[in-house]
Amino acid sequence: MAEDAAEGGLNIHPMDQFVVKPLFGGTEVNWYTPTNVTLWMALAVLCVVLLLVVGTRGRAIVPSRIQSVAELAYGFVYKMVEDVTGKDGLKYFPYIMTLFIFIVFSNFLGLLPMAFTTTSHIAVTGVMAMAVFLFVTILGFVKNGAGFLSVFWISAAPLVLRPILALIEVISYFVRPVSHSIRLAGNMMAGHAVIKVFAGFAVVALISPVSIAAISAIYALEVLVSFIQAYVFAILTCVYLRDALHPHH
């Protein structure tokens, strides 16, 4: 795809931005090598610290601007966890907040020009989705024992349909981490690749205004998508958590 596009004067490499490179030269990527992944994740951590720790340093009753943004983020996730999982899900609020804030900052940092989007990698989102999946499954069995299996047995359906529905439910249950991770990575990757493709068209003088307008439009869309995907990731985590805590629905 990328290398085929080199013909005809256009030299578009929309996927190059996703390549994992070592930060300090060399080509070997060992598990411990500091790479651009490290850099952008560290920047995400820095942003989290700036927003949620430095921003709230004043502990002001009347908040400063950054502090009110931090409180807004806190209240947003807190309310989401409370609404979706119920009161007993609030114990897991820090985990969901961690995931949400990391994804939000990774997505937004990835929108900076020349940036590397860590959340566009299936490895990253897959680990998070798999961690959520395993956590929720283990938690479900620990909390409810074998009763957790009733999540697959829909008592509202007619008896004849229940085995078929159970089969579908089991499949959809095990597909959860796949859709959960690929949704985020796919959205991020597709948006950034499309921006890169349009940026590649911008070198042709004739269509460069169109291309720049399209980049602006898609960039705006991507800002929206960045937030919505983080929200969707977090809210689906809450939904899975609710299934684990209350399998009888």
């Binding site: 989401m80 609404d83 979706v84 597909v175 796949v178 859709s179 690929i182 949704r183 796919g186 597709a190 919505i228 929200y231 969707v232 809210i235 689906l236 939904v239």
Partner: peptide, 23 residues
């Protein structure tokens, strides 16, 4: 207002199947 979260969950489930084709 109280159903916005439900809408997003519904979107996510509908979108999941599109993601499979993407995959």
């Amino acid at each position: 207002g109280s159903q916005t979260a439900t809408m997003f969950i519904g979107i996510a489930f509908a979108e999941a199947l599109g993601i499979f084709s993407f995959l």
